[in-house]
Simulated scan of single mutants.
Amino acid sequence: MAANSPAGSRSEQAVGAIRQSDYRALAEFRHTLRRFLAFSEAAARDGGLTPQQHQAILAIKGHGDGGMSIGDLADKLLVRHHSAGELVDRLVKAELVTRLESADDRRRVVLVLTPQAEAVLEALSAAHLEELRKTKPLLLQLLHSLP
């Protein structure tokens, strides 16, 4: 216990309240997420994309019709703006994304998927949804086991 931490502080009570079954559930939940991520990375590679390219085109598609900016993409991917810009450069070079002037604000550039990206993403998304359907019972069981 820290010298300036009162005995029985909230954090100590929370730590003391964690049961072995909670650790087991957290470990299994994390393992299940890692298995899904490993599946996702392999599926992206099998589809001819890097995992980061897959994440990017999925984020762009999921953003909707208004178009996604590089800043929006950086936020979704949890990367810095310049890293997202470099990724977009590679996506443009691979003919997966185009940059368009925004209809609402001519100063704003939005990212749009090409038909090639749409086709690859549709196949990957179908495989991911099927994997999630298989994993759903275990995830629900793990979530329900938490206090």
Rank of each mutant, 00 (worst) to 15 (best):
E122K: 03
L78A: 12
V15D: 13
R80E: 06
P51Y: 02
D75I: 07
R30A: 02
R108G: 04
A59V: 06
G64S: 04
Y23D: 00
A27R: 02
I70A: 05
E86I: 15
Q55P: 00
M68W: 01
A117W: 02
L87R: 05
A56Q: 07
S125Q: 09
E41I: 06
H82F: 09
A7P: 15
G64T: 12
Q52S: 15
V120E: 02
Q116T: 06
A56P: 01
Q116K: 07
A17Y: 04
K134W: 01
G71Q: 11
A119M: 03
H81Y: 14
R35I: 05
A14L: 13
L124D: 00
D105C: 10
L124W: 08
K134L: 04
D46S: 10
A2N: 11
R90A: 04
L33G: 12
A126Q: 11
V15F: 15
L132Y: 03
S40G: 08
G47M: 03
A119D: 07
G16E: 00
L100M: 03
D65Y: 13
L129S: 03
S40Y: 00
E86V: 13
E41G: 12
S125N: 11
A27L: 10
E95W: 12
T32L: 04
K76V: 04
L49V: 00
S11I: 12
S102F: 04
A7Y: 03
V88I: 05
A43W: 02
F29T: 02
G16I: 07
S5N: 14
R24S: 08
Q13W: 13
Q20G: 04
V79E: 07
R133V: 14
Q116D: 09
Y23N: 08
L124V: 07
E122F: 03
R80C: 07
T32N: 04
A17T: 00
V112Y: 14
H63K: 02
R35S: 12
E130D: 12
M1V: 06
Q13R: 06
S145C: 10
R107H: 14
A74W: 01
H82D: 15
D72T: 09
A3T: 08
F39G: 14
L132V: 11
S83G: 15
T114V: 07
L96N: 08
F29D: 05
D105W: 03
L129W: 11
G66C: 13
F36I: 06
L58K: 14
L146I: 02
A103P: 06
G64N: 05
N4P: 07
Q55K: 10
H81M: 01
Q141D: 06
G8W: 01
Q52M: 05
L113P: 04
V109P: 08
L78P: 13
V88W: 11
R107A: 06
R24L: 05
L73G: 02
K76A: 15
F39N: 05
E28H: 05
S83K: 11
Q116Y: 02
D72Y: 13
R99V: 11
A27C: 10
Q141N: 14
R35M: 13
F36D: 05
S21Y: 03
L100W: 10
G67E: 03
I18F: 01
R80A: 09
A94R: 09
M1I: 09
D22N: 01
L96W: 12
H82S: 13
G85K: 11
L100D: 15
A117T: 03
L58G: 15
V97G: 04
P51N: 03
S125I: 06
K93S: 11
A42Q: 14
